[in-house]
Amino acid sequence: MLTVTNLSVSYGAINAVDGVSFAVPAGAIVTLIGGNGAGKTTTLRALSGLLRARGGSVTFDSADITRLPPHEIVACGLGHVPEGRMIFANLTVDENLAMGAYLQRDRQRIAESRDYVFGIFPRLAERLRQSAGTLSGGEQQMLAIGRALMGRPKFLMLDEPSLGLAPRLVGTIFDQIQEINRSHGLTILLVEQNARLALEVSSHAHVLETGRIVISGPSTELRTDPRLKTAYLG
């Protein structure tokens, strides 16, 4: 569904992502793991067009999206839940979800999407009129995912959904991520620092180190890979 070939992204003279290639097949959950500054977030931001690739290409549904601006990439069906959640803090939960459906014109479909999101995160339905900035960290993460789902993506990128959340909430969020993948066949690219968790839910994983993919393979194999054990699985 998504094919990344030789992608490079740089900030000035620094190559944050240096010739990364991987593919995400339709219906799968694929994860990118790695430490701080490995280039995970940069890769996602380049895929959704927020950063410009210096080299390489990105194909989505057999269309080249490498040079498209972000709003056109979103329109292709690629959703992105950014690092730090980036909800619209001054808007209510309801308005945040409405913003998520910015490109959707069909009211009927938007209403369906809302019901779908409330089915996954009932907590959001209880908080509709509340200003999003006053939500707890976990609720904000739910809202960020809900907002992305309102755009009816075919492919969803999640950047560190577990960051800063209480362990119990992390479990809830990851259960729902798997549920979204199973029930709707939504393809997911997950970026995580918590490698153990990421390897549990994904089918394939790629390990990034200083902008390069150093290890790739099925998640079941990587779970016992000695190279990961010391550095990422503790």
């Binding site: 959704s48 067009g49 927020l50 601006p69 972000p70 709003h71 979103v74 329109a75 959703g79 992105h80 950014p82 980036m86 909800i87 619209f88 803090a89 001054n90 808007l91 409405a98 913003m99 998520g100 910015y102 490109l103 907002r147 992305a148 755009g151």
Partner: peptide, 25 residues
């Protein structure tokens, strides 16, 4: 208006606005 909503979204967070499909330019 739709454009007004987009303006408010950009004012609050330009990256997030782009990720919901707002045309920044």
């Amino acid at each position: 208006t739709r454009m007004g909503r987009a303006m408010r979204a950009v004012a609050l967070n330009p990256s997030a606005a782009q990720l919901v499909g707002v045309n920044l330019n």
